[in-house]
Amino acid sequence: MKQGKTAQIKKMKQVQRKQKLISKNKLPEFNYNEFAGFLRARYYLTHNDKYNQETFEVASFFLDDVIAMMVNQNFTKFTSNERAVVKLNEVMQASLVNSDDKDWRYFVLLVPVLYDMQQFIVKEGSVNARYVAQAPKFDINFWRMIMRTVMAINFFKWQGKDVAEMMKTSQVIDDLQFKFLSENEKDDDFNLAIIAETFKALAVKIKPLKTENKILELNELSSSEIADELSYANKSLKQFKEASVKGVVSENVMNMLYAFHEGMAKEYNLTHTLWDADTLNSFAMSHLMSYWTPVWDSLDGIGGEVKSYLNFLSQKKAIQGLGKMVTDTSDIDRYIDVTALNKLLAQMSSERLENLA
């Protein structure tokens, strides 16, 4: 039925009041880094002391993926002035399915933090103008089943199998996830021995960095030239740490960046003045873990310090071509983060894993 004049005017005034309110409370342009950074900082402040170091680092990685998926699934709302309604179960499941570059132990260690993480995101959403989160009653056995299924999917993915086709035509993924199950009177636990045996001879598949294989063939650096490069590294890294926000550049970061100086000199005969994107990417993939021993500290985001350090070196006129170098190493941060995480997870003893799970 068509509205009368009075009703139309009333409706118009309501719209005007709403528009005025929206205009008054209009959100600034959406900035993903600021949004994600705020939630990460809040999580650190509220949960860092709650968990063991290994558990917190794993949780931090997953939180990053969840935040990214929240925005990805509700991009239009996040980038408009509308408040996004985040369906948290769907977001978390999608984030887990996309975590196909993580060691299987990652999924086992996530289970104890999922409830708290759900509560954290819901609580933050209640006071965040960008989103509100919805989550059904938490069922830990449901999430253990999801974790077992994701591990089973990854097992076949890493062998190059067409998982989507397999799920349509067979029960092998479901059969494998049931093998990973160990039932008791109260909960559905993981059969860690079976899972470990299943993945024993299988390496995690991580998307490689882009390289053009244009590594310069230079004369081998002398011992004194390498010593000079390492001396420069110590001096430069000390200045980098002093110039950074206090506490951001940890010893883990310093050791990782030092490994670039040492490894690039020894493997490619390059001092820092000749660094380029292709060689940086190649070194990160092929040699970094031989020169750097990561520890459970500030792992999530540690790879991003490579670009911060390149910016620092550029400001000091110590390297050239920063723009191209940063552009062509766009994925090196995540690659380093995940590689370091997987290395530490693979080194974890079965006893330690069982205690943390």
Rank of each mutant, 00 (worst) to 15 (best):
S182G: 05
D328H: 15
F142S: 02
A340P: 10
R334T: 03
L181N: 11
A201N: 14
Y258T: 15
A133H: 12
K157I: 00
M92F: 03
F61V: 00
I140D: 09
S222Y: 11
Q239A: 09
D116C: 05
R144P: 13
A193V: 10
D331S: 15
A265T: 04
H272E: 13
E217Y: 12
R42A: 10
S308M: 07
K24H: 09
Y268F: 07
K13V: 15
I226W: 08
D328E: 15
N128Y: 03
W296V: 02
M69F: 04
E34Y: 11
T293A: 09
G263Q: 06
F155N: 10
N355L: 02
A243H: 11
D188F: 12
F56Y: 14
T279C: 09
F155W: 15
R83H: 00
D49Y: 15
F178C: 11
L45G: 14
I226S: 01
L63F: 05
N311L: 04
A259E: 07
V295M: 07
M12F: 07
F107Y: 14
N213P: 11
T79M: 09
L280C: 08
L181V: 06
L39E: 06
F312E: 04
K210P: 13
K50V: 02
E82T: 08
S224I: 13
P294M: 01
S170T: 11
F107C: 02
Q8T: 11
D139T: 00
V127Q: 14
M289E: 03
S99N: 13
K210S: 13
L218G: 01
D189E: 15
S349Y: 01
W296C: 02
L356E: 07
M69Q: 12
A196M: 10
I215S: 03
D174Q: 12
V111L: 13
G304N: 08
R144W: 07
L270M: 14
E354Y: 12
D333W: 07
D331E: 15
Y115R: 15
M151H: 05
N89I: 00
S224A: 11
G37Y: 09
L21T: 09
A233E: 02
A59K: 01
N74V: 00
A68W: 09
Q315K: 15
G4P: 14
G321D: 05
K13I: 15
N141Q: 12
L218I: 03
K5D: 04
G303C: 05
Q119G: 12
T293K: 15
D101K: 12
L114T: 01
Q16T: 00
S282P: 13
G247D: 00
M92Q: 04
Y268Q: 02
F75P: 10
N89V: 00
D331Y: 14
D276C: 12
F61K: 05
N48R: 14
F138R: 00
N128G: 02
S223A: 04
V111Y: 10
E54G: 03
S182T: 07
K179R: 14
M1G: 10
V71E: 07
A233I: 01
T273I: 12
Q159P: 10
N355V: 00
P112M: 01
S349I: 03
G37A: 03
W296S: 03
E54T: 06
E34I: 07
Y268D: 01
V245R: 14
D64A: 00
N213R: 10
I173M: 08
S298I: 01
K26C: 05
D162S: 05
G4L: 06
Y32R: 08
K102W: 02
F199M: 02
